[in-house]
């Protein structure tokens, strides 16, 4: 475990806590894409199949349970919570995310490390995580103004992936046989998707203005 990976996991955790804070504090999920949250729940469920079979460390197991539990709780909240679900902007959350699931699964069947059930699902979860933010970014552009906590949520999600890229660079130079092409390439694509959001986030922060994304 290196500092970049720990920082990445912590910013990932913070992004989830910020989202939970927004939903519970404001009793509202306006501006949040349910589709992105469903994709994240699918990412964690298909990636952490080894939760019950391979024990790596307490930290690893606890974080997997936290990620699975929180993503399912957020999806449940946005679908079932009698107050929160009323604030879901269904008409703004129109990205056809089933295409993302189909495309990433097709890619996972073509590009994988080993042709086994778990490895295919692992590759699928890696590819799906790279594009899972798209419905959320599209929804932010549709809704124009981004509320403060939602902006922070997306920012921390992007920061988590940026730290992971530093982690892979660090491991590449310090560990003899570290090659994770699938995770690295997919992680680069994922971080690139945040690039324009980071740009507008930085501009709004510099001008101390409200974050506005061009439609």
């Amino acid at each position: 475990m290196n500092i970049f990976r720990l920082a990445g996991d912590m910013t990932h955790l913070i992004s989830i806590l910020v989202l939970l804070l927004k939903i519970y504090a404001t009793k509202s999920c306006s501006g949040i894409s349910l589709k992105t949250q469903e994709l994240y729940a699918l990412v964690f469920l298909t990636r952490y199949l080894d939760l019950l079979t391979d024990f790596i460390s307490i930290y690893n197991t606890v974080m997997k349970l936290v990620f699975i539990g929180s993503s399912l709780a957020i999806v449940w909240c946005m679908r079932r919570h009698r107050v929160v679900r009323r604030s879901y902007d269904k008409e703004l959350d129109t990205f056809r995310h089933y295409f993302l699931i189909a495309a990433t699964f097709a890619l996972a069947v073509l590009v994988y490390e080993k042709f086994t059930f778990r490895e295919i699902l692992w590759a699928f979860s890696i590819y799906l995580e790279a594009v899972a933010i798209l419905p959320q970014l599209v929804m932010l552009q549709r809704s124009g103004n981004v509320d403060n906590l939602t902006g922070k949520y997306v920012f921390f999600l992007g920061a988590y992936r940026a730290f992971y890229i530093l982690n892979w660079i660090y491991r590449y130079f310090t560990e003899a046989r570290f090659t994770r092409w699938i995770a690295c390439v997919s992680g680069l694509v994922q971080t690139a998707l945040y690039a324009d959001f980071f740009y507008y986030y930085f501009i709004s922060w510099k001008n101390n203005a409200k974050l506005k994304l061009p439609a």
């Binding site: 990976r5 997997k64 990620f67 046989r177 570290f178 994770r180 995770a183």
Partner: peptide
């Protein structure tokens, strides 16, 4: 190369 390495990242 990877097979020896478990998936230790989240």
């Amino acid at each position: 190369a990877l097979n020896g390495q478990t998936k230790d990242e989240l």
